[in-house]
Computed example of a mutant assay.
Amino acid sequence: MAAGALEGKVALVTGGSRGIGRAIAQRLGRDGAIVAVAYAREESAAGEVVADIAENGGRAFALRAELGRHGDARRLWAAFDARIGEYTGEPVVDIIVNNAGIGRSAALAELTEEDFDEVFAVNVRAPFFIVREGLGRLRDGGRIINISSGAARLAMPEIIAYGATKGALDTFTLNLAKELGPRGITANSVAPGIVDTDVNAGWLRDDPAAQAHAASLAALGRVGRPEDIADIVAFLASDDARWVTGRVIDATGGAGL
């Protein structure tokens, strides 16, 4: 992809303050997009992402967006509208990356109704209404990129609800591609496997045996890095991916082959 491939584009990245979302925001910023870095609680971390993008010649701003409650999408877009005019003069967006999500490591017998409701509210309902509320802002030829998971296609009973949310997200992606295709808008999912982020640090980084096992699950023989996922998202966001839509892009390094 050429440098500045996203120049003039506006991107919204949810969960953009850390991990995969942080890497995505930074990469889109380097490619020239104006990036809205949405975060739930970690204001200082979101500020670091904005500062990093600025230091590399890009433009970005942070948005507080706690997801999982009714009205969350409307509040997110209201905050977006209040800031984006500083850069574009009107409330528009070209790239929506639904990255924010939570996991619930509980098997069927242990999962509570409250935990089930919360994981679906953040991982499914929030992306659904973020897209719905954002359609009036999303320019023709835009991109919707949903961060799914390899857990949507692999049986993992220990995270059964999480896997179900990602399966639902993939179905949402498929239908968006069909509905929005006439406007030249593409919709795709990216499905990571095990990625070395701070969310996984407790069981992965400090345990060589866990690292070795995680690496052995991938055909490429290592644990994923946030940048691996961000680079795929950058491709899907670019004009190079204009003919790709309705797909789930496996980003597990070949797990489960």
Rank of each mutant, 00 (worst) to 15 (best):
S17D: 15
A107V: 10
I232K: 11
A251Y: 08
W77F: 14
H213L: 06
D170N: 15
D240C: 08
A60N: 10
F120T: 04
L169V: 15
G193M: 00
R30D: 13
D228K: 10
N123W: 09
I34L: 15
T171H: 13
A60R: 08
T112D: 09
L76H: 07
V124Y: 11
A82N: 11
A237D: 10
I194W: 02
D207C: 10
I130Y: 01
R139I: 00
G224V: 06
A33C: 09
G47S: 02
S148P: 05
P192C: 04
N98Q: 09
D94R: 00
L236N: 07
E110D: 15
G202R: 12
A151G: 08
R247L: 07
I95P: 03
G4C: 11
A109L: 14
G224K: 01
E86H: 02
H70M: 02
R153M: 07
L217S: 07
D94F: 07
A82G: 13
R59E: 15
G85I: 08
R22V: 00
R225S: 03
A209F: 04
V35L: 03
R132K: 15
A11P: 05
I20E: 09
G71Y: 11
I102A: 11
T245S: 15
R222H: 05
G224M: 02
I84W: 03
G167A: 14
L169Q: 13
G32L: 01
G246M: 07
R139W: 10
